[in-house]
Design a protein around this nucleic acid. Structure first.
Ligand SMILES: [Mn+2]
Ligand SMILES: [Mn+2]
Ligand SMILES: [Zn+2]
Ligand SMILES: [Zn+2]
Lengths: 148, 148
DNA sequence: AGGCTATTGAGAGTCGTTCTCGTAATGGGG
DNA sequence: CCCCATTACGAGAACGACTCTCAATAGCCT
């Protein structure tokens, strides 16, 4: 995912909607693409403040929204009513939260397909988006507990 | 679910936690039990204002939170960062929330088994409890939209 | 009943997000 | 390449859902 690729994709998807390719949108898009986790607008603002002190928070919100519209990012609802954004298109991703060490892993999304199919077939319900969080013990914490 | 049942259940579950059975909590619990769809604190506040003009919004938030803690309700995250609450019978079940009519169905739990197995096998993660909410269109709303 | 203390109501405060508005930049047409 | 309508930006105010503060009230226990 080189910077030039991000810029080219952005140019195509943004301008084809009658919007303009601004420096700020490029900066935000590249920063989001560099993240491998979901990140909030405010976190992104702090992170970019060193290199781009004049980049405003509202602009980041608008740039992220434009990317969602363009299909280049997804908005997740984080707990505490905070939106977080992830680069890449297709699906949300879901989390395994370790109740011992508090670390978070991403769920392998392919695991969820049978569930979505089951819901469609058994409940006749068309899922648009879902929020899935699993709480428990990660492999490392389980080994540590076993060692005691 | 008669009013007396709601009151009795509430009394047991609230007072056993060292909390007090107040008029306000009873009013909110009965109103929530009477709803068959998820409802926000503010909607509940408006709805109750006629009969109980002195019932405060903060009290409704606190009463709903107490019910969630007591295992009698679930909080759902609605789009636009609004929490919605549903009365619940048992503690551990999952929901299909229709984003059009706001009705809530319980998920057939057997559908979820392959997911839990997949998480154990693929992620080496021991799930203790999980929170699953699916948002989309129910069968009825989908038919209504198709008819237009 | 009487006292301890959880809870209430009203409003102020918090915080993420969006809006307003004057200024600056973009990009298509000349 | 330069114009210029139009889109976007930055700063701060506004907004909305939710939480906190605090004095007054009301459950609960003896
Ligand atoms: Mn993640
Ligand atoms: Mn339920
Ligand atoms: Zn762990
Ligand atoms: Zn519906």
């Amino acid at each position: 995912m080189p910077r030039t690729t991000t810029r080219t994709t952005l140019a195509k998807r943004i301008t084809s909607r009658g919007r303009r390719l601004t420096k700020q949108r490029v900066i935000v898009a590249q920063a989001l693409a560099a993240e491998r986790q979901a990140i909030s607008a405010q976190e992104l603002h702090q992170r970019l403040h060193h290199g781009h002190p004049r980049l405003g928070l509202a602009t980041i919100y608008r740039a992220l929204e434009a990317q969602v519209e363009a299909g280049m990012a997804t908005r997740l609802e984080r707990q505490g009513h905070v939106s977080a954004y992830v680069a890449c298109v297709s699906e949300h991703h879901h989390h395994l939260v370790c109740t011992s060490c508090q670390r978070v892993e991403d769920v392998d999304e392919t695991i969820l397909r049978p569930v979505l199919r089951g819901i469609r077939d058994r409940h006749d319900f068309q899922v648009d988006h879902e929020r899935l969080d699993f709480y428990g013990l990660c492999a490392r914490c389980r080994r540590e507990k076993a060692a005691l």
